[in-house]
């Protein structure tokens, strides 16, 4: 079998311990639920808290990531401000890929939620967003996206060339180029029967971006309605691009 490119091997090593992440988030949410009746969060509020805690893990991952750790904090912040919601959405999507059930959603806590329950309880916009994510899951499933490709795509999301005013633009470009080359090499070598898998994956990434932009707008709208718990990383990131 062909080799796995060095970049991808390194990224695989940097993947967080899922059980640890899950345990931390579950503990945090249980603490929320232990509060008095008047302080307790709504279901939506809990989902926001869950996303907020997942973001913490994403930042932890980015911090230790190759190339990223070479950047100054200012540039690190710009990259994450650009892609935080994409990384959240992609994390959700990959979880569903592994979960492998069209009719239910697997949360980072390990809880499984039926699509019918989401349809019944979530507003129409949120329901639409979740359905669109499920569609993307199906597309990626038919493309046979594997873990090696997942970590590479995650890295490509982080090192987006869309970000302006970077101090070390050259390093970001180098990271992008290396990751693209690795993904091309990997897909061509391991899926020779799957014509153009590299380009197909990048097309799906664009869809992840579009979906995450919609999700951000939805969340911002909910925030303006006072429904999103405040003073947390999620709200900060939401505000970062909206001056």
């Amino acid at each position: 079998p062909p080799d796995i490119p060095e970049v991808i091997l390194k990224l695989l090593q940097l993947e967080p311990d899922e059980a640890q992440v899950k345990g931390r988030i579950v503990a945090c949410l249980q603490q929320e639920q232990g509060k008095g009746r008047h302080e307790r969060l709504s279901t939506f509020g809990l989902m926001c808290k869950m996303a907020d805690q997942t973001l913490f893990s994403i930042v932890e991952w980015a911090r230790s990531c190759i190339f990223f750790k070479e950047l100054e904090v200012g540039d690190q912040m710009k990259l994450l401000q650009n892609c935080w919601s994409e990384l959240l959405v992609f994390d959700h999507i990959y979880r569903q890929l592994q979960h492998g059930k069209e009719q239910s959603v697997l949360l980072v806590t390990g809880q499984e939620v039926d699509m019918s329950a989401i349809a019944a309880q979530a507003g129409s916009i949120l329901n639409t967003l979740v359905l669109r994510a499920q569609e993307l899951v199906l597309h990626l499933h038919s493309l046979q996206v594997d873990r090696q490709e997942f970590v590479c795509l995650k890295f490509l999301i982080l090192f987006s060339l869309d970000v302006k005013y970077l101090e070390n633009h050259a390093l970001v470009r180098e990271a992008q180029e290396k990751a693209n080359a690795a993904l091309l090499e990997y897909t061509a070598g391991h899926y020779p029967h799957c014509a153009d898998k590299f380009r197909q994956l990048l097309l799906r990434l664009a869809e992840v971006r579009a979906l995450s932009m919609q999700a951000e707008e939805y969340l911002y709208h909910k925030h303006l309605s006072g429904e999103v718990p405040c003073n947390n990383l999620l709200i900060e990131m939401l505000h970062a691009k909206r001056t």
Partner: peptide, 18 residues
């Protein structure tokens, strides 16, 4: 003040003593 992203900066800057 809302958008100086202080928490993100702190998370990126902090020292891990592992």
């Amino acid at each position: 003040k809302k958008n100086n992203n202080a928490l993100l900066r702190y998370l990126l800057d902090k020292d891990d003593t592992k």
